[in-house]
Measured scan of single mutants.
Amino acid sequence: QEELVKAFKALLKEEKFSSQGEIVAALQEQGFDNINQSKVSRMLTKFGAVRTRNAKMEMVYCLPAELGV
Rank of each mutant, 00 (worst) to 15 (best):
Q1K: 11
Q1L: 10
E2M: 12
E2T: 09
E2F: 11
E2W: 10
E2I: 10
E3G: 10
E3C: 15
E3N: 12
L4G: 01
L4M: 07
L4D: 01
V5Q: 10
V5R: 07
V5L: 13
K6G: 08
K6T: 12
A7I: 07
A7E: 04
A7S: 08
A7L: 07
F8I: 05
K9S: 06
K9T: 09
A10M: 11
K13T: 09
E14I: 07
E15Q: 10
E15L: 09
E15C: 15
E15R: 06
F17Q: 03
S18F: 06
S18R: 14
S19L: 08
S19A: 07
S19M: 06
Q20T: 13
G21H: 11
G21E: 14
I23K: 00
V24Y: 05
V24T: 07
V24K: 05
V24M: 07
Q28F: 09
Q28L: 12
E29T: 10
G31F: 03
F32S: 00
F32H: 05
D33H: 13
D33C: 09
N34Q: 11
N34A: 09
I35E: 01
I35Y: 01
I35M: 08
Q37T: 12
S38T: 12
S38C: 05
K39V: 13
K39H: 11
K39S: 14
S41T: 08
S41W: 08
S41N: 11
R42W: 13
R42I: 13
M43F: 07
T45R: 14
T45V: 13
K46M: 13
K46D: 14
K46T: 11
F47T: 06
F47C: 03
F47N: 04
G48Q: 07
A49G: 05
A49W: 03
A49Y: 04
V50W: 05
V50L: 09
V50K: 14
R51K: 14
R51Y: 15
T52W: 06
R53N: 08
R53V: 15
R53M: 15
R53F: 15
N54D: 03
N54S: 04
A55H: 12
A55Q: 11
K56P: 02
K56G: 07
M57R: 07
M57V: 03
Y61L: 04
C62M: 12
C62T: 13
C62A: 15
L63Y: 04
L63E: 02
L63N: 02
P64D: 04
A65H: 11
E66L: 05
E66T: 05
E66G: 08
L67E: 14
L67P: 15
G68F: 04
G68I: 08
V69Y: 05
V69K: 05
